[in-house]
Design a protein around this nucleic acid. Structure first.
Lengths: 319, 319
DNA sequence: ATTGTTTGTGTAATCAGTTACATATTGTAT
DNA sequence: ATACAATATGTAACTGATTACACAAACAAT
């Protein structure tokens, strides 16, 4: 039914689509719930019904502004309800523009049933809410308030400005960064060790070794040029979620916090994807890297038994 | 713009309407964000675009199942994108039923721009998320999971069963319970004291004294008959949110936990409405009530200076 | 008293999705 | 080899909302 994988990949860009899907689903459920109670009311009538449930009289526009819809849709609902014999429409004597709506006796007679239904739905929703760590209801209220303060457009606009003025950017790996990925990693290996045939293979076949297995690579761009890379791979060890590897920054670009920014990005992604136990292997000669690992809270593990000969230190972090 | 008052009143019954409103709003914003980036892509194309962004080829139905929409809507999107020159459609050689979609070179050329847009939107959304106590994104994922386990319909169904088999029910106040509200309160006052003219006035004019000021009354029904009432009023003292008052249960119905259930309901409502500091006044001769107050954690306040002569104890609770 | 603006309602077209059903291919079980 | 079921697409009609626009009543300012 749900396709959580897709939305995990899109990230928050697809909020609209996701909300629409959830809305659809909730309305679907609502329909069958109304049927369960034998109330001949369409779910979309509910807001109007609720407003008039105790005999209140209201003009179309008034209803619309209260329930947050356009007068056109309220008009359509009112007509449908009128046709179903639940609602009466009349002109306001004092202001001949206004059309006053109120429930018919038959409409009013449903109020009790509907009230029971509300009761049951409320307690079912309460039950659901208790099972959630994040209260959907409150979250909606919060985001509405936050977007009232400053629209998403404005926020995105300033992020855009920020980004455009920042020469350093972290982006997800793409095929076009493959050469840089290989070159950057080759460089630090060759500085201290020699490149083994396995190295060449694993670097060249990025897709097979990292991405296809559910791993991710991020690239640091300086004025659009790739100057740093770092990979997070699904960890083969049971006790960890992600292994950080292939972390390399061009020597001439070091010392400007680019590596740190890249690494922070990786940690954030891990957090987002719900993997909290991180692992990495390295060598103590790579002082700059070890410094960054420690800075972000990685702790050294006691014993080392690595597949790579050039590793003499293993570290872990639980986010 | 938003109408939070209305949704506060409807409670969780109007989740569908509320979600639709939020969806509408997000999509509205999305539209202007796309414009900001000068990408000639409609927001609703995004899921399809995202899937094909790196040259992937996919059949219509395949796309549909991945993004959680019907093949019909994907087809419509594909046609629109085709018309806009962003997408190519071709028949699968091996399976002549399948229509394969992939981005045209022009479509692919937008990928970079869109990626930047994703980046900015993601960081704007992250900023928003950090301001929220309840993570909307996670809340959606959670509720989807919970509803996968057991549909809302099923949950409501069992709540209905429970309610129908439980003779005791707590419902919000309605006009028809007015007589019971007056009678129940009059009874305990007259048992220990005499009814003053102010009492009569405040009980009779429930609307003006309690409801119009944003207070709430709940009624305990036993087999449909009102046997208990309790009010929560906006507290006049700065340091509290709600004052509990007019708490009365018919003597012949006492000792069956009805009063307790009613009181628990009140506490829950206070919690829901975000009022955490509660206050009440009472008299120590009302042992049953004092017992319930203490049971739920109310603590006695030292000094008493009440408007009511018959009060000799004041209590408070922070939820 | 007149005129221009605001407000309330109504109509038509549009949008982004849906369901229901038709048609063409492909797979499968005798 | 055939017939039936399953799959992939396509079409038409519907749904629940919207925007754009028309028109009449009420209000406000000269």
């Amino acid at each position: 039914m749900t396709s959580p994988d897709f939305f995990k990949r899109t990230g928050k860009m697809a909020l609209g689509s996701r909300l629409r899907l959830l809305t659809e689903r909730v309305n679907e459920e609502a329909k069958s719930i109304y049927e369960l109670y034998g109330v001949e009311i369409k779910p979309k009538w509910f807001p109007v019904y609720f407003l008039l449930a105790h005999g209140e009289k209201m003009a179309i526009t008034e209803i619309a502004s209260q329930i947050g819809q356009t007068h056109v849709s309220v008009l359509a609902i009112a007509k449908e309800m009128h046709k179903a014999g639940l609602l009466w429409l009349s002109k306001d004597e004092n202001d001949r523009r206004r059309t006053i709506a109120r429930l018919s006796p038959r409409g009013l007679s449903y109020t009790d049933k509907l009230e029971l239904q509300c009761l049951d739905v409320a307690s079912a929703m309460d039950e659901v809410t208790q099972q959630m760590q994040n209260d959907l209801w409150k979250a909606i209220a919060e985001i509405e308030r936050i977007l009232d303060e400053r629209s998403l457009l404005q926020r995105v606009e300033s992020k855009k400005m920020e980004r455009e003025h920042d020469p350093v950017q972290i982006v997800p790996y793409q095929e076009k960064y493959h050469d840089a990925f290989v070159a950057l990693n080759t460089h630090w290996i060759e500085t201290y060790w020699t490149l083994e045939p396995e190295d060449v293979e694993s670097l060249n076949d990025t897709n097979r070794f990292i991405l296809d297995k559910g791993g991710h690579i991020f690239v640091a761009l300086l004025d659009g040029d790739p100057v740093g890379v770092c990979a997070m791979m699904k960890c083969e060890r049971e006790e960890y979620d992600w292994e950080i590897a292939k972390y390399a920054v061009a020597p001439w670009a070091q010392g400007h916090g680019i590596g740190d920014k890249l690494f922070r990005h990786i940690l954030e992604k891990a957090r987002e994807m719900g993997g909290f136990r991180l692992f990495l292997e390295s060598n103590t000669v790579l002082e700059a890297a070890i410094h960054i690992y420690k800075k972000h809270g990685f702790k050294e593990l006691p014993s080392v038994s690595s597949a790579y000969e050039r590793c003499n230190i293993q570290m872990e972090l639980t986010l």
